[in-house]
Lab assay of single mutants.
Amino acid sequence: MFYPNSPQTSPQLTQIPYGQQYAMMQRQIQQPYHPFATTEPQARLYPYHYQGPIQQEQGGFITQQSTAASPQYVQMRVTPVDQSIMSGYPNQTANGSSSSSFNYNIHPQQQQQQQQQQQQLRHHAMPVGSVPLQDDRYRKQLIVNYLAPDVTSTDLHELFSRFGELDGARIIYDKQTNMSKGYGFVYFCHAEDAKEAVERMSGYEFHGKWLKVGYSTNPLNIVPSNSSPYVHAGSRGAAG
């Protein structure tokens, strides 16, 4: 039997160049792979992502010199942007860049009308829970959420009447099932009393439920100042 490094198959040491006398086997001759043993700084910083320098080929596509990437890492192929796409944008300079302001050559009167329309939209648009300043009635009506099913309009009136005089209180019921929808409205005579009720009743436990109280901004629920107070009856038909 002959071994790869046996004296019968191995040459004389004098015939082997210096430095390879003890590297006779194939696994010894093959050098191990060192990912950080390279002179390129990109490979030292990113050993798993770097795959060699990027070269520009004919046709405008950018390719990489090395083989496919590892399945664990996804390499994105980048193509140059066609400058003709950006030619339609206004205020574009000769080098292809555009300024931040756009001039669509709008007539001054049209621009003024658009600004007025935007101001009107901001004036009428009102986020949930906010209180408008032009109508004091919005500051007097509250919406009470997360009410228990057994709470009546009379219970709601008695709960909030300790903060001040009320114009009314009612629970909203479903017309088909005649069941409470879980929320109601309270109408105060003074805005200061309503503000105190919002601050003190939010998070209050009532009939096993934690109440959420806020201003009601729905104009359909506003009680006119010259109208008669609501009837605080315990029956659902009268309260709904």
Rank of each mutant, 00 (worst) to 15 (best):
F2W: 11
F2E: 07
N5P: 04
N5C: 01
S6W: 05
Q8H: 10
Q8C: 03
Q12N: 01
Q12I: 01
Q12R: 06
Q15K: 08
Q15Y: 04
P17W: 15
Y18E: 10
Y18V: 08
Y18Q: 15
G19M: 10
Q20T: 13
Q20A: 12
Q21N: 03
Y22G: 08
Y22C: 14
M25W: 10
R27I: 15
Q30V: 13
Y33M: 15
Y33S: 01
Y33Q: 03
H34N: 10
P35H: 06
F36Y: 03
T38G: 04
E40A: 09
P41S: 09
A43M: 12
L45C: 04
L45Q: 09
H49E: 05
Y50H: 13
Y50I: 03
Y50N: 02
Q51H: 11
I54K: 02
I54W: 04
Q55G: 06
Q55E: 08
Q58H: 03
Q58K: 09
G60N: 10
F61R: 04
I62K: 14
I62D: 06
Q65C: 07
Q65D: 15
T67D: 02
T67G: 02
T67S: 05
A69N: 12
Y73Q: 12
Y73D: 07
M76G: 03
V78Q: 12
V78I: 13
S87E: 05
G88T: 08
G88Q: 02
P90D: 01
T93W: 15
A94K: 13
N95L: 11
N95D: 02
N95F: 15
S97C: 09
S101I: 12
N103E: 00
N103V: 00
Y104S: 06
I106K: 07
H107M: 01
P108T: 11
P108D: 15
P108Q: 07
P108H: 00
Q109F: 14
Q109P: 15
Q112A: 06
Q112Y: 12
Q116W: 01
Q118S: 05
Q120W: 02
R122I: 06
A125T: 04
A125K: 02
G129M: 00
G129P: 12
G129R: 04
S130M: 15
L133P: 11
L133V: 00
Q134C: 07
R137Y: 01
R137N: 06
Y138K: 01
Y138N: 13
R139K: 10
R139C: 14
K140S: 00
K140W: 02
L142Q: 03
I143K: 05
Y146V: 01
Y146D: 02
Y146I: 01
L147N: 01
A148V: 07
P149Y: 01
S153D: 07
T154D: 04
T154S: 11
D155T: 04
D155V: 11
D155W: 00
D155E: 01
L156A: 09
L159H: 12
F160I: 04
S161I: 14
F163I: 03
F163P: 15
G164L: 06
E165D: 14
L166P: 08
L166E: 10
R170K: 00
I171V: 03
D174C: 07
K175S: 08
K175H: 04
Q176H: 13
T177L: 04
M179D: 07
M179F: 06
G184T: 07
G184C: 09
F185N: 12
F185H: 10
F188G: 05
A191V: 07
E192G: 08
M201S: 02
M201H: 14
F206E: 09
H207K: 02
G208Q: 05
W210M: 11
W210P: 01
V213E: 00
Y215D: 09
T217S: 03
P219I: 01
I222D: 03
P224N: 11
P224L: 02
N226R: 09
S227E: 03
P229Y: 13
P229F: 04
P229M: 04
Y230F: 03
H232F: 07
S235N: 07
S235H: 10
S235A: 11
R236C: 05
R236N: 00
G237M: 00
G237Q: 01
A238V: 13
A239L: 10
G240I: 13
G240R: 12
